[in-house]
Design a protein around this nucleic acid. Structure first.
Lengths: 214, 214
DNA sequence: GATCTTATGTGACAAAGTCACAGACATGTA
DNA sequence: TACATGTCTGTGACTTTGTCACATAAGATC
């Protein structure tokens, strides 16, 4: 069981070397494996942080919630990535600035805060990994600010459909799309209807099909 | 001259210890002091990074620009802080994801990328400093996403006036305010006019005076 | 099929961004 | 002083986006 996890782990985090002799070995011996079922909440805004989660498989969605209940996705954490906000609040001593929920069933390796801190001190790979991720997140969220502040919703929606669709199909409710984009369900419905009328997509319950990539 | 800079430096960065024996000494011997006049551009989006800037005095504004020319301020860098995006792109090897311009005359200590990297490797204070700043920026920009996505412009404007004013006065053109908030000049003008009509502020060219803090 | 739950559609209105242009104020120059 | 110039502010008309209220539709369960 531990070995199985190990092989999944090095697949997700090749950067930490092999199980036999790499940093991976140390991580696996320190960390605790956990399974998070889909829809389970990992953190709420304002929480303190007890440890850091390395995602082995699955996906975690990090988002903000407005007073009216609207949501916007800040980014998603996939295999080989870390819930960097954990790192953030462990290393800077602040509290968690957003909500995090598993989008799918997710396997994580949970490292206690202390161990994580000493690993960062001792291992250059660990530092590089964290810095890189933190930097990329920052750049990504900055990009998001630009889109939200200046972008038009119809374009953002179209880009979203293109990006999230697989095989020209996207399975999602209008509400889910709205929650990712930071708008309301009605707006998504209206804009999708426009796209449908123009012949760019076809719609059925819970599914959008891309017809023309114009 | 060097000594003078030194004392300014440790005032801005007490975290790095004293000039005589602290990390401060090393930083001062490696870094090059530079003065940036107000309005001068430090970086444009897409630039590579040659070094990292520690701000000794003054202020640097980091912002995004939309296609229509609108701007939004992501954050400002003051004394004792770093143009963390430099760090970000040095450590992660990406390019600069925003624009940076000196808001006032600014003094910085410029560290070459290589020296910076080895300092981060060798000194725990340096690592903590960078992590903390990077984390805080990330949290700050997330907060900004929330405000832009869910906040009402009249509230954001009012908060801005309260925060930026000194002694109940704020010297700024409507255009400048719009550039900070990520909206257009007309919207700011209209909302300010409303505030004036309601008796919350008084306006004259280039200046806003807060009358009632309701 | 009757009933429930969830998903989608839409009109009416409010908030915010865009465009076009009119004044108002400050400064410099003749 | 009078005038020209550049910057700053005001405003109406229109578009886009968000909110509210409610109607309709599509699956699921019994």
């Amino acid at each position: 069981m531990q070995t199985m996890t190990g092989s999944d782990f090095i697949k997700a985090f090749p950067i930490f070397g092999r199980v036999k002799d790499g940093l991976a070995r140390e991580l696996l011996s320190i960390g605790v494996q956990r399974r998070i079922p889909a829809q389970e909440r990992l953190y709420s805004e304002g929480d303190g942080c007890s440890g850091i989660a390395l995602v082995i498989s699955g996906e975690i969605r990090v988002f903000k919630t407005g007073r009216t209940g609207r949501e916007i996705t800040l980014y998603e954490i996939g295999p080989g990535e870390t819930c960097i906000l954990n790192a953030s609040c462990i290393l800077s001593g602040s509290s968690y600035p957003a909500d995090a929920v598993a989008s799918t069933d997710t396997e994580i390796l949970l490292l206690p805060a202390d161990s994580f801190k000493s690993l960062v001190d001792e291992h250059r790979e660990m530092r590089d990994f964290i810095f890189r991720l933190l930097s990329n997140r920052l750049a990504g969220v900055m990009e998001l600010v630009e889109e939200v502040a200046f972008g038009r919703m119809d374009e953002r929606l179209w880009d979203y459909i293109i990006e999230k669709s697989e095989d020209n199909r996207l399975a999602a409710t209008h509400q889910k799309i709205a929650n990712d984009l930071g708008t309301s369900r009605e707006v998504v419905s209206r804009l999708l209807k426009d796209l449908e009328r123009r012949g760019s997509i076809a719609m059925s319950r819970n599914e959008i099909t891309i017809l023309s990539v114009t």
